[in-house]
Design a protein around this nucleic acid. Structure first.
Lengths: 137, 137
DNA sequence: CAGTATCCCTGCGGATACTG
DNA sequence: CAGTATCCGCAGGGATACTG
């Protein structure tokens, strides 16, 4: 997604560059389908068509692109069996499964706060439409 | 980013919906500037212009949009002091700081594996350009 | 100071026909 | 089966002039 390289450093209390690696990670999983593919391959080798079926709504093109990107980053292995018809299997690497574990932390965060977030949204949206007219007369 | 709603469920060993909340989280921080803003506001109230200076490269428009989105999700509070000239301060909520903590896990992951990732990329890219000609003569 | 409004442009992602 | 090639639409994001 091409994030900013740095962001000033006038506050000695924290260095934004400490957080920069996160951006790299987000970059890697920010694609619309990356997480789904990561999840689908985390439990063992999966074939292309199986992924296509399992990940509802993904197009052939995007599946390929997502697969290639993850492979390039070393998160996926691609194994070709030179049979006919061809057989290709994708599997998450150890690194990817580690990443996958970290996702659990976010899942719990989301679960804990989803009500709060929904409420915040409702409140925000309500404020946006109602405030313009505080005193009609 | 509008992610897919679900993705099949033929494998009883895992349910992809367990991971769906992650997508919600990613959605919230997947913007190009969200993380930078989150980081910049995590340590206390910050003013608009200060953010603009601190986050190198961000445009006025994107800063505003990012701020509004985070505020809408309840991750940021916006406090207006009706002085002249106006003074507005943004601060991360508890929920946001919790999220911020989780980022640390990813940071360590990225730090541990950045060499491995770089190597994987180099290898992948090298393979892409060299393979077409395995035996010149 | 703290935004909003406007214009433009790039690249992600969707659909699908074609191929080794 | 497992892709690649091609075309296209749209939303995210950049730049900047204007305003309460």
């Amino acid at each position: 997604m091409e994030f900013p390289g740095k962001a000033g450093g006038m506050d000695p209390e924290f260095d934004i560059k400490d957080v920069c690696p996160v951006i790299e990670v987000i970059d890697r999983i920010s694609g619309k389908w990356s997480i789904s593919v990561l999840v689908a391959t985390a439990h063992g080798p999966v074939r292309f068509t199986e992924l296509e079926r399992q990940i509802t709504g993904i197009s052939r093109r995007m599946l390929t692109l997502t697969l290639r990107n993850l492979e390039r980053d070393g998160l996926l292995t691609r194994t070709v069996y030179p049979t006919v018809p061809p057989r290709v299997e994708y599997a998450a690497t150890g690194m990817a499964r580690e990443l996958y574990e970290h996702l659990a932390g976010f899942t719990s965060w989301a679960a804990r706060h989803q009500g709060e977030i929904a409420a915040a949204r409702t409140a925000y949206d309500a404020g946006r439409t109602a405030e313009p007219v505080p005193a009609p007369g």
